[in-house]
Amino acid sequence: MTTQPLNRRGFLTRVAALGLTTALGTTLAPHLARAEWNKAAFDGKSSAEAFKALGVSATAESADVQILASDIAENGAVVPVQAVSKIPGTTRISVLVEKNPSTLAAVFDIGPDVVPDVTTRIKMGQTSNVTVLVEADGKYFTATKEIKVTLGGCGG
């Protein structure tokens, strides 16, 4: 019986390994379950108010956070913005538009299986600074870019 590929010990080891990976899979992303719509943060009228409601303390500008968007948006109703973080351990990416009536546009909770690189389209009422806020290991990093709007997106 030397060709028997799976003896009892080998089988048990495999079962244990499988159990471990399953357990890891479920515990690796606890922050994905914490999301409850943060009204206070979305009601914030400035980055400072939104940061406070998000529990953000000290932020640092970082070259590892990138905003990919055109400098001029012809139509403020549809402004494509790509937010990229190259910081290891990124768990959350937020997009804020300083001069919008509600500054916070979006919060993405990034699981370990997702590349911290998200693209969406936002509305901008007027030319404004757009900030991407990245949370990684409990620290906060930002990047800011001014996007000029030639036609506002919040009028009638």
Binding site: L32, A35, W37, N38, F42, A77, V78, V79, V97, N100, S102, L104, A105, A106, V107, F108, D109, I110, G111, V114, T120, R121, I122, K123, M124, G153
Partner: peptide, 10 residues
């Protein structure tokens, strides 16, 4: 992934 959005999304 999960996300929270505000009305600023197009």
């Amino acid at each position: 992934m999960t996300a929270q959005w505000g009305p600023s999304i197009s």
